[in-house]
Write a protein that binds this DNA or RNA. Structure first.
Length: 848
DNA sequence: CTCTCCCGCCACCCG
DNA sequence: CGGGTGGCGGGAGAG
């Protein structure tokens, strides 16, 4: 006892530690670090103990007077290997992760910090209460969240391990290194196993397969989901909700499938997983639930699944008698699963707004198309969005979320004018919308997408971008989906249109998009938007905060952005794929922050000057890449005429908007539009904010098909893109004027793509991060310029080469982005090489 | 208050 | 039987 007392005193007296605790910020790192060391040393490795410091605390002091820390908390301290620690740190370092943790804090340059930071927090608990408080606060629940934990877990392994090398995962080891109980790891592993990302090898051992087979797995799940008629079930349930009247019908699940099926799921042939066999036990739940949950998304037209519907379906399947009591439990489990899926960037949180209120839901942002092919198509049409305008009441908004998350808004800058905050965030769907959507969807279905996912192109993009799937997922291209434009779009629209609808918005905005738009224009966003943003947690949990991060991510991803070659017509398909690849690649490259940063900076300089948005990206890109110098940014040059279509941003890109050159567009170019929405288009990705400045036009473009007519939206711009129209969907065009392209214009003809991309650049992140740019940078606001130009010439460029694998990871580092695209192309190669890419850092860690 | 979801008890099973 | 797994739900953090 005494000892303890003494200890405490000592502690108190000792400045150092206290300080730590106290300080957070920057120092924190050091401190943290410091702390850790100390802890570690003294302590023995704890095993897992994660958190209970309490006990230890006491002791600790005794032992170490000096360092009271307890480590315990640290997550685990895990002494075992220094490496482990590094890994952890690395993980933490990953942008994503960080973001979460800090979210708001800007980036911290150092990644480690975060971890440290966290740790420290925990640690402190140790000592003093004061400290404790301190710590406690921060770490908080979020730090312990399954999503974050999952990200850390994922950061340890490459998304796409080289050839099949298999990495074995020791649950104990992971638990230790992540500082959590093994129980938590089970939760993660079970979900991953359901998607075949890992398989159980032996007792405590799992083998890591990575995402290589994910498309296949998803395809299988989709198929199963179709068999089971989940779609119908969902529809019924939704209807019920809407119209209680019908209820009953809904319930019955599909006929065909027996419950048993579930098990099957697991079985899919999975390449990798051998182990499957093992499922011993029951494969109950979590795995199966996870698969079913994923299936719901895959079969859903909207790609949005509300938890209550999912829970109901699961309950029905598993039990004959729907037991209400189970509902709550199911929902809990779904959250667990959703956290993991979110970490995988397969889904993101959104809210569906119904008449009655919001409902928690998740939107699929993963690859839409699993087809091997890979072409991605953008679905521009999809944009259809709904009119968001007033969603208010009914809100039409629909909002499906865009798939991707966009990053946020503001990410770039906080200041950013537009906050785009809302952007990503959530989307709400109104019931009405649903209906509408449904209808639309239906139509859409017709579209070719194999997989069905119709998802929004954006999504696909996103996915691509992100990484995830390396595989090219082809988006469903043609399919137009409806989707709501991401906020950014709206923004654009808004800006352009401004007048248009924005107003509406509100909330509605359908959420996302709408709001954004609005936001852009109007500062005020609807609360909803805010929420939205918040909500999304996933990406990193926090969506917002991390905006920066996100951006980063985006960027990275962003790179992907886009540029697609457009091909004039339809080639889209073909082309598209490429494009997509390109994008993907881009991201990869960048990955690295450093580079990016520098680039960014450079860029920023340039860009910034203008303030355009472009700066962010654009510059970077330019710099980096390709670009040619010539250009100028802003002014784009020639291209002025260019028009761009706005596409919702891919998931990875937060905050970035994707523009397709309209040039291609029929009008402009006269391209033929292809009949579908094809996509092959080049596109640029811009920070959303940037867009806002531009005028928006709607055109049918791409989708060609329609020639001119397009859709709907025109004017409305932001607001609605009619669903209906969707198919063809209108596209928004951005007025050339506005746009600028920085370099792009310059770009040599080479690839348009490149150019495009270049222009796009996304680098923003970096810049921002640096501060150079900063958020808010004027640029955006400024004008229009930003845009890139992509020029598009008609040429389609194909990126052929591009392939990218992008893998990426989500976790990418922040920076990257910008250039990515361009570079990417060129550099892709390199990138590829570095598979690690994504996580660079991580890789290190991860690799292991 | 509601939404999330962490935490860990304790049952199930395998070896 | 012991220990790995993992269902399950209380209860609390966050908003």
């Amino acid at each position: 006892m005494e000892v303890n007392c003494l200890t405490l005193k000592d502690l108190i007296s000792r400045p150092p530690r206290l300080d730590f605790a106290i300080e957070d910020g920057e120092n924190a790192q050091k401190e943290n670090i410091f702390v850790d060391l100390s802890r570690m040393a003294p302590k023995t490795p704890i095993k897992n103990e994660p958190i209970d410091l309490s006990k230890q605390k006491i002791f600790t002091p005794e032992r170490n007077p000096i360092t009271p820390v307890k480590l315990v908390d640290r997550q685990q301290v895990e002494p075992w290997t220094p490496t482990a620690n590094l890994k952890i740190l690395i993980s933490a370092a990953s942008p994503d992760i960080r973001d979460r943790e800090k979210k708001k804090e800007l980036f911290r340059p150092i990644e480690n910090k975060d971890d440290v930071f966290t740790d420290s927090m925990q640690l402190d608990a140790v000592d003093d209460s004061a400290v404790d408080e301190f710590e406690k606060q921060r770490p908080s629940r979020k730090q312990k969240s399954l999503g974050l934990l999952c990200q850390k877990f994922l950061a340890r392994y490459p998304s796409y391990p080289l050839s099949t090398e298999k990495t074995t995962i020791s649950l104990d080891e992971v638990a230790v290194s992540l500082g959590v109980e093994r129980r938590r790891i089970y939760d993660i592993v079970n979900v991953l196993e359901s998607l075949h990302l890992v398989s159980r090898v032996a007792k405590n051992q799992y083998s890591w397969h990575g995402r290589h087979s994910l498309p296949k797995t998803l395809r299988n799940l989709q198929r199963l989901g179709e068999k089971q008629k989940y779609e119908e079930q969902m529809a019924h349930l939704q209807q019920k909700e809407l119209n209680p009247i019908d209820h009953k019908s809904g319930e019955r699940r599909r006929d065909g499938c027996p419950d048993s099926q579930d098990p099957q799921l697991l079985d899919f042939p999975e390449p990798d997983c051998p182990s499957s066999s093992a499922n011993s036990r029951k494969d109950k739940s979590l795995k199966i639930m996870s698969q079913k949950f994923v299936m719901l998304f895959l079969v859903s037209k909207t790609k949005i699944v509300t938890l209550d519907v999912a829970a109901k379906i699961l309950i029905e399947e598993s039990q004959d008698i729907p037991d209400h009591s189970k509902f709550k439990t199911k929902v809990r489990r779904l959250y667990d699963i959703a956290n993991v899926l979110t970490s995988l960037m397969l889904i993101k949180k959104v809210h569906v707004t119904e008449d009655r209120g919001r409902k928690p839901a998740f939107k699929w942002i993963g690859p839409v198309d699993f087809s091997s092919t890979g072409v991605y198509s953008l679905e521009i049409g999809s944009l259809a969005a709904v009119s968001r305008q007033k969603m208010e009441d009914n809100s039409e908004t629909v909002a499906f979320a865009s798939q991707n998350m966009m990053p946020l808004p503001s990410s770039l800058d906080p200041a950013a004018p537009l906050p785009s905050p809302s952007v990503d965030s959530e989307y709400r769907v109104s019931p009405l919308c649903h209906q509408v959507l449904s209808a639309a969807q239906t139509d859409l279905k017709a579209l070719p997408a194999q997989n069905g996912l119709n998802g929004q192109g954006g999504i696909s993009l996103a996915s691509m971008a992100l990484d995830v799937e390396h595989q090219p997922q082809p988006l469903a291209a043609a399919q137009p989906l409806l989707y709501v434009p991401p906020a950014p779009l709206f923004m654009l629209c808004g800006g352009l249109q401004e007048g248009l609808s924005p107003g509406s918005g509100s909330g509605s905005g359908s959420v996302g998009g709408g709001s954004e738009v609005t936001a852009a224009e109007q500062p005020p966003m609807p609360s909803g938007q805010k929420r939205l943003s918040k909500e999304r947690r996933l990406q990193e949990e926090e969506e917002e905060e991390p905006a920066t991060k996100r951006q980063c991510r985006d960027h990275e991803d962003g790179p992907l952005s886009l540029v697609m070659p457009k091909k004039p017509s339809d080639s889209a398909d073909i082309a598209s794929p490429k494009t997509s690849e390109n994008r993907a690649s881009a991201p990869h490259e960048d990955t690295h922050m450093n580079g990016q940063l520098s680039a960014a900076k450079a860029v920023s300089g340039k860009a910034t000057t203008n303030g355009f948005v472009s700066s962010e990206w654009g510059n970077p890109c330019s710099n980096t890449e390709i670009e040619k110098p010539s250009e100028e940014n802003e002014s784009t040059k020639g291209p002025s005429p260019l028009q761009y279509l706005y596409v919702q941003p891919p998931a990875g890109l937060n905050g970035l908007s994707v523009l397709l050159p309209s040039s291609q567009s029929p009008h402009a170019v006269g391209l033929p539009v292809g009949p579908l929405p094809s996509l092959s288009i080049q596109y640029m990705v811009l920070p959303s904010p940037t867009l806002s400045g531009f005028p928006v036009l709607c055109s049918p473009t791409m989708p060609g098909p329609v020639s001119s007519a397009p859709s709907p939206l025109p004017n409305v711009g932001p607001v609605n893109f009619g669903l209906p129209g969707l198919g063809s969907t209108a596209h928004l065009l951005i007025g050339p004027a506005a746009m600028v392209n920085p370099k792009s214009s310059t770009l040599p003809s080479t690839d348009p793509q490149l150019q495009g991309p270049c222009s796009l650049h996304l680098s923003p992140v970096m810049s921002r991060s640096h501060g150079s740019v900063q958020p808010g940078s004027p640029a955006y606001g400024s004008l229009p310029a930003a845009t890139v130009k992509l020029q598009q010439s008609p040429v389609p460029v194909t990126p052929k080469s591009i392939r990218c694998t992008h893998q990426e990871t989500f976790f990418k580092t922040p920076g990257s982005l910008g250039d990515p695209v361009l570079r990417r192309k060129e550099r892709n190669q390199s990138r590829s090489s570095s598979s690690a890419q994504r996580r660079l850092e991580i890789s290190s860690g991860g690799t292991d």
